[in-house]
């Protein structure tokens, strides 16, 4: 079965005919060629595929695209503005929060979701918000530091 999905992706409204069983990650990566969103474990365990749906972090590898009807979807591609990195992207870059970079799009989207809800989180809240995002390189310390830097409370 196919259906028409209308959604706003990174501020641009789209309408597409999609299969009922199409996952959001495949819709983003294959139909919309937004390959910034990464597929890691492919089973909702690693957080690499995190995107924002209506401002809330969601795992696109276990979300059906058709359930995002009329939703506002944001991916890592929507973070920068006219070629300028967002505060979070710059903080990850400057504080070495990124090593291989595979988990970074998910980390940044999860952190972005956190900062909208809670503009001044403490370390515990940052850790709790990123608890579902795994990283094999950094040991997390620099990721927490990057998020802290993005909120201007770097110590």
């Amino acid at each position: 079965m196919k259906q028409i999905i209308s959604a706003t992706i990174n501020g641009t409204s789209c309408q597409d005919a999609i299969d009922d069983n199409l996952l959001l990650i495949d819709y983003l990566r294959k139909n919309k060629t937004l390959t910034g969103t990464k597929s890691g474990c492919d089973g909702g365990e690693c957080g690499a595929c995190t995107v924002l749906v209506n401002g809330q972090p969601r795992l696109s590898c276990i979300t059906l695209a058709a359930t995002c009807q009329n939703a506002e979807i944001e991916t890592i591609e929507g973070e920068s503005n006219n070629g300028r990195l967002s505060a979070l992207q710059r903080a990850f870059h400057e504080n070495l929060g990124t090593q291989c970079g595979f988990c970074t799009p998910g980390m940044i989207m999860a952190a972005s979701g956190l900062l909208r809800d809670n503009p001044n989180p403490n370390d515990g809240e940052i850790r709790a918000a990123l608890a579902g995002n795994l990283c094999r390189c950094t040991g997390y310390v620099k990721i927490i530091k990057s998020v802290r830097a993005a909120i201007g409370t770097s110590s």
Partner: peptide, 9 residues
């Protein structure tokens, strides 16, 4: 339960 990303849906 799980992670905040799961708990959103």
């Amino acid at each position: 339960i799980a992670s905040p990303n799961h708990r959103n849906c």
